[in-house]
């Protein structure tokens, strides 16, 4: 596993030279953005144990935020981080609900995401309503518009790698340990002096900001935003990415994102059946790979006596 990260990074960096196909690069950019989104939920669910069904809301805040800010003349390099911060701040609205547990937290975040979706759909003056926002500017670095799909891909892949490393560092720190402890036993965490609500809220804000970053990149990658991309389905899709990747595994979340983005594309050949097959694949993976994709190698290697 020690070589996993550098090898993956190298392969990801060399991909455009190996496969200079615009559509493929477009897809891989989508994978990188989805990976950021999945990493955000993975941190919330895998490290702090909070299930959010409202990631689409923060994704939407980031996307529309960055699109509107660049539309108003702000440079890309300022608008994207600002949009991520804004998405993080928007999650502060939900801080009171972090004291809810399990399904109650999930349903409260779900409610929030439905409200956000309706705002996107109905507030035409701001979001363009059902027609959406068109003509969003391309990503730009140092005043240069990135016209080459390979450059956009590199940017998104590099940011995904940064998010991955950042969240890994966070999980492996005093803060991450505390969040992890709270996930396992809140009473014991409190008795050890941990400020449980504060730490859970911080995880929420971080996860929302990461989702917002993904949304901002999405806006400039696709360059068109409509409400459909921010419905409850998006939240479910993120959850599927994290779970098929294996809850608790950051690398798994990236793998899960790749599967969720690429599988339906590969299945275009089967036309109308593709979502049917996708649904079946999700069920099948749950049935046959207990730890998600991250657990598959172990499941294949597993010997009967290896399990306690």
């Amino acid at each position: 596993m020690r070589w996993g990260t550098p090898v993956t990074l190298l392969a990801a960096a060399l991909l455009p030279s190996a496969l200079p196909d615009a559509f493929l690069l477009h897809l891989m950019t989508s994978v990188a953005i989805a990976a950021i989104l999945a990493l955000g939920l993975q941190f919330l669910l895998g490290v702090s144990g909070q299930l959010s069904l409202g990631q689409a809301a923060f994704y939407g805040v980031g996307a529309y935020g960055s699109a509107l800010m660049t539309g108003a003349g702000l440079p890309f390099a300022a608008a994207v981080p600002l949009a991520a911060v804004f998405a993080g701040l928007s999650s502060l609205v939900l801080i009171p609900v972090t004291r809810l547990r399990g399904p109650y937290l999930a349903v409260a975040t779900l409610g929030f995401s439905i409200i956000a979706y309706l705002v996107i759909k109905n507030e035409e003056w701001l979001t363009g309503g059902s027609l959406g926002l068109m003509g969003i500017s391309r990503p730009a670095l140092f005043g240069e518009r990135l016209r080459d799909p390979a450059h956009v891909y590199w940017l998104c892949a590099a940011l995904a790698a940064l998010v991955y490393l950042g969240l890994r560092r966070l999980a492996d720190s005093r803060f991450g340990r505390a969040a992890h402890a709270i996930r396992q036993d809140e009473d014991a965490a409190r008795a050890s002096g941990l400020r449980v609500t504060l730490i859970k809220s911080q995880c929420f804000v971080i996860s929302a900001a990461v989702s917002g970053l993904a949304g901002a990149l999405f806006a400039h990658h696709i360059r068109y935003l409509g409400p459909a991309d921010f419905s409850f389905w998006k939240s479910v899709e993120v959850l599927i990415m994290v779970v098929i990747g294996g809850v608790g595994s950051a690398a798994g979340a990236i793998l899960g994102a790749a599967v969720v983005v690429l599988l339906p594309e590969w299945l275009r050949a089967v036309g109308d059946y593709r979502l049917l097959v996708f649904g079946g694949a999700v069920v099948g993976l749950m049935l046959f790979g207990s730890g998600g994709l991250a657990g598959l190698p172990g499941a294949l290697r597993r010997r009967p006596e290896a399990r306690p």
Partner: peptide
């Protein structure tokens, strides 16, 4: 009430969280 998925060392480290 321990944190079963953490190592013994990290369990003890949680006790020191407030000092960090």
């Amino acid at each position: 009430k321990l944190f079963p998925e953490m190592t013994a060392l990290h369990n003890a480290a949680i006790g020191l969280h407030a000092d960090g």
